[in-house]
Design a protein around this nucleic acid. Sequence first.
DNA 1: TAGATTTCTTATCATACATCAATACCAGGC
DNA 2: GCCTGGTATTGATGTATGATAAGAAATCTA
Lengths: 197, 197
Amino acid sequence: MNNFKLTSFLTSNVDLDEKMLNELIANFKIKHFRKGEYLLQQGEVCTNYFFIETGLARLFGINRVGKEHIIQFAPEGWFVSDRESTFFKQPSSYFIQAIEDTKAFLLDEQFILKLSESNPAFVEFNNKLLHNHIRNMTKRVYQLLSATAEERYLAFTKTYPDILLRVPQIMVASYLGITPESLSRVRKDLALKNFKK
Amino acid sequence: MNNFKLTSFLTSNVDLDEKMLNELIANFKIKHFRKGEYLLQQGEVCTNYFFIETGLARLFGINRVGKEHIIQFAPEGWFVSDRESTFFKQPSSYFIQAIEDTKAFLLDEQFILKLSESNPAFVEFNNKLLHNHIRNMTKRVYQLLSATAEERYLAFTKTYPDILLRVPQIMVASYLGITPESLSRVRKDLALKNFKK
DNA sequence: TAGATTTCTTATCATACATCAATACCAGGC
DNA sequence: GCCTGGTATTGATGTATGATAAGAAATCTA
């Protein structure tokens, strides 16, 4: 048995025998991206889901004045894609970029659909992924509506302590919806508060 | 043939014969909610999806200090639910409340799952709903990250002109992530700008 | 219709966060 | 090793939005 993260992800989430599993893995393309390279560019139609096997990627958009806004980080073991583009066959509004050297499996949407027809476990699997996605996005909306910059930063450090150490602060700020300068000050204030305790 | 919004929603989104369709509709419970009544309360597990046949509902949360934050509006023809709670069988963090007198179909999750097994068109249908949900939430996250209060308000007036006229401004403000006072100012500024043109 | 309640507006003041600018820091390429 | 460009910090200042309060308007309800 191979040692891919994707393998253990599938075995723990879909009911498959080993033969079927290996057949599957063999069917997926794996692709390497150097730090900075793009998995998806704005304007392209996103035809796959990416499973990050190793490395780290980000999903982000750029507004009229050239400012970047990060919607999602995707470290190893995570899926990333622009589902809107993939499902509705529309040019993507976003970019997906490798933040570190990254190895990713490309899961073709058509292929997944076919699997779903023959294997009900796959329907359930896909459902789980989609609901997980919705859960994360809903929490994110709620946070952005209700929490201050400091609260959002604290939540981030608790939820994604690993990512925090792997990306420049400028990107954490972008994810949180504040400027890097503000984030620097938030961190300073927190450090002070902790010192005083 | 009946005249339900749900009927036309289904016929235009799922490939079903009329017999099957009527059988379906007969299986769904319909429920009336007076303005102010709750379709779902925080702490409950959400066991159905609600299809709003007439009226208007909102999905919202309340934070520690008692402040409400609206995640989604659901007018007639829309689905609303806490999918996280439904799918993962967890107590909901949110409320769903009727803003107007509302008639809603209650779609039982188990029932939908069963339909999916026998009818592949239903898998596709469910997929479409989920992807639509993800699309909306992603746009919302991106907006909250990148746009000013004024920009968000303008986008709202364009995307949901009907809802704008049906809910108190206090709720629009809550949806946009600002205070009612700020919204009032934004509106005043916009009115001034338009007058000067 | 009148009274009560909520909603909306406006004003003042407070604050969180942005912007701009300067400096120090660090990392990758030559 | 030394540039070079990106990153982080800090300070001064500006601005958008929040908090509070009060009155006007609209809506509900009896």
